[in-house]
Amino acid sequence: MNFKETVQSKTFKGFIIGVAFILLLVIVFQAGKLVGLRKAEFSGRLGDNYGRIFDDGIRPPMMIGGMMDSLPGAHGAVGEVLKVSSSTLVVAEPNNLEKVIRVSSTTAIRKFRDTITILDIKVGDFISVLGEANGQGEIDAKLVRIMPK
């Protein structure tokens, strides 16, 4: 069997498919590891800073979240506003987890087509937040949008 026949054979085709499949598996596994690590880091920071953030004297939970699917997301929040201050919001997500959103001068806060300020947000408003976790278990918001109820 010469080189050309080998390359055109079914076995060679199967080998290429096998390699492509393993590559896809590795890429997906790596992506999963990355997302899981970020979620776990955020969950850890939130747990470490729980008492400081919520200032209620209650001991922080041993671990916030549990299985992978219930670990808090570290890149945003969706839920009802519980508290508003000059630079932070506390949001309660539908799974009853509370997140602190830190707002800065670069955060875009929007309601319908208008750009508003943090002080225009009221307790009880339903918001979506896009951002990034910081080292204190909070989310630095890039975008906050008030959603219609």
Partner: peptide, 21 residues
């Protein structure tokens, strides 16, 4: 649909928030 330009700038955070959810 509501904030296309902002999502385009912060596409990484947007993609990760979708994956998280």
């Amino acid at each position: 649909f509501t904030d296309t330009s902002t999502v385009a700038v912060y596409w990484k955070e947007f993609s990760l928030s979708l994956v998280d959810a």
